[in-house]
């Protein structure tokens, strides 16, 4: 079977299936989940049973239902963050690449400084000032993450801007906007697609980590990082409650990574290490 003219290997199909299932679950959580998001149905850490397939959490809510609702919040926040981050990063990156040396210097040096502070540390500083609402969380992460998108978008656009077909458009007398939209953007998108997958994984894990630290998505919303935090103590009793959401996070990132690996492999060539000696 082919996809966009390429034949994905088995691993890529696994990745695509995982992503499809998780997104389906996230969208139709209301219909799939057996219980409500914050509904208490049992005791603390009940064993798995027919009524609660994965057991209950630290305050007696159904773990499976929390997991299903958690998909919506965790994936949703990461996705919105990544889309926003790409919008900001690509716009500023292209501006730096074709807008002249002054804009380029200002934007690039600012990004250099932001990038010389570890992302998590910067996020912690901002969250300590603003507190953790979902809007602040998404905005903060998107702006910080866009610095990396900026770097790539700028590099890609700079390489494209010196291409002779772009020069030909300038010689024809085309405007900056037309050149960015018609000559650069269509060529810049393919390398950005795999980057989108990688940035999504990064943001997804990042949101999970922040929630785990209690600084991300706040209760009563279910989210996978927060669920690990809530149920963390269960592990000392040998109860695997925190592992389920952790496994969900891992499965999602592995899925996206498998697809990204396939996209990257489409353009890669074998290196000298595999030559016939």
């Amino acid at each position: 079977m082919k996809l966009f003219g390429y034949k994905p290997p088995f691993t890529a199909w696994v990745g695509l299936a995982i992503i499809a299932i998780f997104i389906f679950v996230a969208i139709f959580a209301d219909f799939i989940a057996p219980y409500g998001e914050a509904e208490s149905v049992g005791q603390t850490w009940d064993d798995p049973s027919f009524a609660n397939w994965l057991g209950t959490d630290n305050i007696g809510r159904d773990l499976l239902s929390r997991l299903i609702y958690g998909a919506r919040m965790t994936i949703g926040v990461a996705l919105v963050t990544t889309i926003l981050s790409f919008f900001i990063g690509i716009t500023t990156g292209f501006m730096a690449a074709v807008g002249g040396p002054v804009i380029d210097q200002i934007l690039s040096r600012l990004v250099d400084v932001i990038l010389s502070i570890p992302l998590l540390i910067f996020a912690l500083i901002i969250l300590s000032v603003f507190g953790s609402s979902i809007t602040t969380l998404v905005l903060t992460l998107a702006i910080l993450d866009s610095t990396r998108v900026f770097r790539l978008a700028r590099a890609v656009a700079t390489n494209l801007a010196v291409m002779e077909y772009v020069e030909a458009a300038r010689l024809r007398g085309e405007g900056l906007w037309w050149i960015m939209r018609r000559e650069i953007l269509p060529n810049a998108l393919p390398p950005m697609i795999s980057e989108f997958g990688l940035r999504f994984c990064f943001n997804f894990l990042f949101v999970a980590s922040l929630s785990f630290l209690g600084l991300g998505i706040q209760p009563p919303f279910a989210d996978w990082g927060g669920m690990v935090r809530d149920n963390g103590k269960a592990i000392s009793f040998g109860i695997p409650a925190p592992l389920w959401p952790a496994i969900a996070i891992a499965t999602m990132t592995v899925g996206v990574n498998l697809v990204v690996d396939w996209i990257l492999s489409i353009n890669s060539r074998p290196s000298g290490a595999s030559a016939e000696m």
Partner: peptide, 9 residues
């Protein structure tokens, strides 16, 4: 692909 706390737990 796995979050750090997963390995830890």
């Amino acid at each position: 692909s796995v979050p750090e706390f997963f390995i830890a737990y």
